[in-house]
Amino acid sequence: MTSQRSVALDRTHLAYLYQQFAPKILDYVYKHVSSFQDAEDILIDVFVAALKSSSFTSLAEKEQLAWLWRVARNKIVDFYRRAQRAPRLPLGNIDEQLVKDTFPTPEQISIQQEEGDNLALLIERFSPLQQQVLYLRFSENLRCAQIAARVGKREGSIRSLLSRALNPLRRHYHEQEKGGTYFGPTQ
């Protein structure tokens, strides 16, 4: 019975401290963090820590106040440490262009399909071995040594085949950037 009464008195005293000092601590925290909601969260964490602390009630009122201010400062430091490890971006700051880019327009879809068709036409001009090597390298993510073992060639030959296949593809995309269309030589 006595422990329940002392817990009730402690909570009443903590409520008194909250009413007296929470506005000042909240102002202090808000000056050091990016948003009012974060400041409120930190303030709540400070008083929850006081509620959970076994030594808080044994302190004199001035010591309790100093303890609250120290915990508030430490919570602010913790807030910034967490922010450095996992930066957060408030939803209000998301660039509209970023949102627009996640959903391609019909025009963008059409352009992508056209580019894919042009690429397929270019690859069709390659030898069957070059086509197979490109497929194994980029679709199956195999390394040159693995491709060489699969097709029965030396690793150096595979590197040469890849290089000869990728050069026309690069030229094709450079031409695309300039506005022209390059279909490369027949291989």
Rank of each mutant, 00 (worst) to 15 (best):
L136D: 10
Q4S: 14
A50R: 01
K100G: 04
S160F: 13
K153T: 07
G180F: 08
A49R: 09
S3I: 11
Q37H: 05
Q84Y: 14
E177I: 13
F36L: 15
T105G: 02
E124C: 08
Q4M: 15
R73Q: 10
P106M: 00
V48F: 11
C144N: 13
V29Q: 06
Y182C: 06
A165Q: 03
V48K: 06
I76G: 00
Y18A: 02
L91K: 12
V48C: 06
G152S: 04
T186C: 12
V77M: 05
D10M: 06
Y173A: 06
A8L: 14
F56G: 02
L26W: 02
Q97F: 12
Q20L: 11
I25C: 00
A149M: 09
L89G: 03
Q130A: 12
E140D: 09
H13K: 05
D41P: 03
N167R: 13
L122S: 05
A49L: 10
L98G: 05
I42M: 00
P106W: 02
A8K: 13
R85T: 15
I123K: 10
F36M: 14
L14N: 01
Y80S: 01
L169P: 01
E155A: 11
Q131H: 04
R125I: 03
L121R: 10
Q187V: 11
D117V: 14
Q97P: 02
L43N: 00
L166F: 08
T12E: 14
R70N: 12
P185W: 14
R5L: 09
G179R: 14
Y18C: 01
G179K: 13
R159L: 13
E40A: 04
P23K: 03
F138A: 09
L14K: 00
K62W: 10
Q176L: 15
E155V: 10
D27W: 08
G179D: 04
D38T: 03
Q20T: 09
S157G: 11
D41L: 04
S34N: 15
I158T: 04
A49Q: 14
L122P: 08
K75Y: 00
L134C: 07
L119I: 03
A22R: 00
R171D: 01
L162M: 03
L121I: 09
I25Q: 02
L68T: 00
I147W: 13
R150N: 14
H13N: 07
Y173K: 01
V151K: 11
V29W: 07
Q132N: 05
V29Y: 09
Y28N: 02
Y16H: 15
Q132C: 04
S34Y: 15
L43G: 00
Q19T: 12
Q19V: 12
H172E: 05
Q64C: 08
Q146D: 06
L65A: 05
Q108H: 02
A39T: 08
I147F: 08
Q20K: 09
I123R: 11
R73E: 01
Q131I: 09
R170A: 05
Q108N: 02
V46L: 01
P87H: 03
T57I: 05
A86R: 13
A50H: 04
V151H: 08
G180T: 10
E107C: 02
A8G: 01
R85A: 15
S110G: 13
A120R: 10
T102P: 07
I109K: 12
E155F: 07
R11W: 06
L119T: 07
R5M: 10
A145Q: 15
R159I: 12
E155N: 11
D41Y: 01
K24Y: 15
R137D: 10
Q112M: 08
E115G: 07
K178C: 13
